[in-house]
Amino acid sequence: MKLVVVSAGLGVPSSTRLLADRLAAATAERVPSGAEVRVIEVRDLAVAIAHNLTSGFPGPALADALDAVTEADGLVVVTPVFSASYSGLFKSFFDVLGARDRDALAGKPVLIAATGGSARHSLVLDHALRPLFAYLRAVVVPTGVYAASEDWGAEGLPDRIERAAAELAALLPATLPAPRREREEPEAFEVVPFEERLAALRD
């Protein structure tokens, strides 16, 4: 079972990464067969993502990260809140993912999470992240986790982490790994026979 964590924190150390790791650990604990966790730090791919936006194709390191996300059984995605939304870099990562393979997240269980300086932006989960992943056709778990600075010293955050992790774990393959979706190989091109296309225009 492959669990991939996409963390878009910019600082080192980063509270976004801290939250991401706690969510990943809480999820992995609940998978009886064990989980292989891979963390993708979007920060490390910042330049490659910008290049992909201008050149139209990913460099090797970014391609590897996009493949990992595409082939994951479940995702934990965590972004800092910038200007009342997800960070631009976080969005750009999913922009290049969707441009490369628009079905990359189709049907995939995703846990959304965000960090911010205060609790004022906690609805970013529901007005920004949830619609983004709905558009990408992911299955977003009901509980999103928002951690403001004050939450790190308050009650409640561990409960939310546990609840969200349980919801994600329930959607992951329990014992046997589910048939994994590989990136499409040449044989997998969906070809509509040409006669059908011509005929459709004649109707």
Binding site: A50, H51, T54, S55, F57, G59, P60
Partner: peptide, 14 residues
């Protein structure tokens, strides 16, 4: 292709 990947990256990948 300007202002994007380096000449070296571009020649390697395309």
């Amino acid at each position: 292709y300007g202002h994007g990947p380096s000449l070296e990256d571009f020649t390697e990948q395309t």
